[in-house]
Design a protein around this nucleic acid. Sequence first.
DNA 1: GCCCTTCTTTAGAATTATTCCAATTACGAC
DNA 2: GTCGTAATTGGAATAATTCTAAAGAAGGGC
Lengths: 142, 142
Amino acid sequence: MSTHAIHSDALAQKLADSGLRNTPQREVVYDALLKKRDHPTADEVFARVKPQLPGISLATVYNCLETLTQCDLVRAVNFERGPTRYCPNLHQHAHFHDETTGATHDIELPAALIAKIKSVLPPGYKADALEITFRGKLPASR
Amino acid sequence: MSTHAIHSDALAQKLADSGLRNTPQREVVYDALLKKRDHPTADEVFARVKPQLPGISLATVYNCLETLTQCDLVRAVNFERGPTRYCPNLHQHAHFHDETTGATHDIELPAALIAKIKSVLPPGYKADALEITFRGKLPASR
DNA sequence: GCCCTTCTTTAGAATTATTCCAATTACGAC
DNA sequence: GTCGTAATTGGAATAATTCTAAAGAAGGGC
């Protein structure tokens, strides 16, 4: 079974779990995120799926991204006031936002560190989500 | 010397350092942030300063907040797609965003932990800024 | 297979937060 | 005082996203 098929199954499964239908639009949007993991914006996703589904609308892309986020297949990421970006990496991870290129890199976080960070919360605080973002410049040589 | 005067001096000083002028608008905006540290939006700041300076415009509030941020007197904070919020706490700290009330609480971070977090970055990555946000629910009893 | 209900998609209008712009207004230096 | 720059103002403009109403599939029960 190809990687694509595995992911496609995961999509169908997760959608079914939430009582939602699998549609061509949702498939191509999810596919686009998996194929190029550069944290695209909704607009960028729209541009990427258009060739495969010329009739798709931007509103649908927004709908699909929202649905995928709800199903925990995709994570929405925000950097300051910029447009929301989407990331199919479900692993708990941080983001490094390169100010020179505007690119975003995933930074894996050891589970122990995450636990340690959550432990600074005062008693009674319970975190459902933890968002960690670095901002900086990468040497141009990369 | 009152706390206010100290802060007012800090404002004048920092502005002068950047070759900027101190204006009544900048003073009341900064004052509003210091007086009620609940991470207000630009709109909220606008509403709070209006009584003291009825002629002030929303554009000016945005300008002042931007200026204060540039001078490192204030930090701009973003939660997902919401409006930018402003925080006069310059201490390195994280934010806890309470999903029930929408309130934001500052979480102080030990310097050692910050260092540890930064140390997970691969070689070559240099972080100028680090943003840490928790999202969750606080017991209603608070 | 057909009908009914529900879920999706679509195009375009509407909204929200923010920035831009051009025209005053206010300082500070000389 | 005058001049040049900086700051403020109101309104128009923009960007990203959401809303809305209508049309289009898709299953389930018969």
